[in-house]
Design a protein around this nucleic acid. Structure first.
Lengths: 188, 188
DNA sequence: ATGTTTCCACCTAGGTGAAAACTT
DNA sequence: AAGTTTTCACCTAGGTGGAAACAT
């Protein structure tokens, strides 16, 4: 098992930080909605010939429900919810692959989708609206079948608040500016 | 290694036969063009827990160059070419996967592309125009790392002639009728 | 009121055949 | 003359935010 210098970089780090400064919001829908930005990683220090699975889960930061206060442009805690359902895990579709393959190009989780539908059967990650979440990356080495190693990485700048409609208009503008699928790019 | 009742069915068999009756033509381009129909398989009798790779290569049927004779609507041999380059192999992007996974849904090779550019670096299959070819399917079991088993399947109805522009108008019409990406569907 | 769902115009991304231009 | 390349209008497929309708 590789014990030494495994490292994971968030490639689109700069974009994530821009959102995080304002307060990232992610839309969740019944049908499932992609995250923007998506999580894009660079892996280093893997064993080139060893098989790995790379996966993501998204944990609630706390049990608070949040609401957006317009006049102060801030998210305020407003009551608690007991989080009942255990979080799903989204396995990167290229898994399993050798360290070689994972390291030779950035790993993009752009097909991951978020939903608020607790009965979802398409493998989307189920979240509650108006809550704060923190994505986690898991690197699982399938060295022996018995003794699996799991290393978990957390990027604090990827934390976000779930919504069904954007609250902060600065977030809306940044999404439109940076997401090629969002319309209105020409407009200032 | 599984020695007993492995079987592979061509799911879209009926469509392939319709084309084959007329004389299937596949367009090849410099940039790479998909096959239509694409090869769609059902696997049975795999070991559910064993890892397999499924791949395709496309072999020349003979060394003849063919030309299409319009007034007789037939392909005629017209000189020979020495086929120099060894054929590439296209590995199904889901490979490797367990027998379990391969068997639970049809396996589609719809992202495979054909090209006439011998310098192609995108992994497209390189063919010569105006030649006859026969696709082959390879099932590779990675049971032990040392002793790999390979089983090869051939569907004669998948043989075709390569072109850079369709010769037989019946082929053109059938492509338009059946391929959702081809325009002119409304017209009779 | 506040939050959610549905629908839609608008976009990206890319697979077609046809026609024109090009090559030999 | 025969075959190839380029370009293009037209399509499928599906990811956006926004508005309106809906739910609580």
């Amino acid at each position: 098992a590789p014990a030494a210098p495994v490292s994971v970089d968030l490639v689109n780090n700069e974009l994530w930080r821009k959102f995080h400064e304002i307060g990232t919001e992610m839309i969740i829908t019944k049908a499932g909605r992609r995250m923007f930005p998506s999580i894009k990683l660079n892996m280093k220090g893997l064993d080139p010939g060893c098989l790995y699975i790379i996966a993501i889960d998204i944990l609630p930061v706390d049990n608070n429900r949040y609401r957006y206060v317009y006049h102060s442009s801030q998210w305020m805690a407003a009551g608690t919810t007991e989080s009942c359902t255990p979080p799903r895990t989204y396995v990167h579709p290229d898994s399993p692959a050798t360290g070689d393959v994972w390291m030779k190009q950035p790993i993009t989780f752009d097909k991951l989708k978020l939903t608020n539908n607790e009965q979802n059967k398409k493998g989307h990650l189920i979240l509650h609206s108006m809550h704060k979440y923190q994505p986690r990356i898991h690197l699982i080495s399938i060295d022996d079948v018995i003794r699996d190693d799991v290393i978990t990485f957390v990027f604090p700048e990827c934390a976000f608040t779930t919504v069904t409609a954007y609250q902060n208009q600065q977030i809306t503008r940044l999404k439109i500016d940076r997401n090629p699928f969002a319309k209105g790019k020409c407009a200032v």
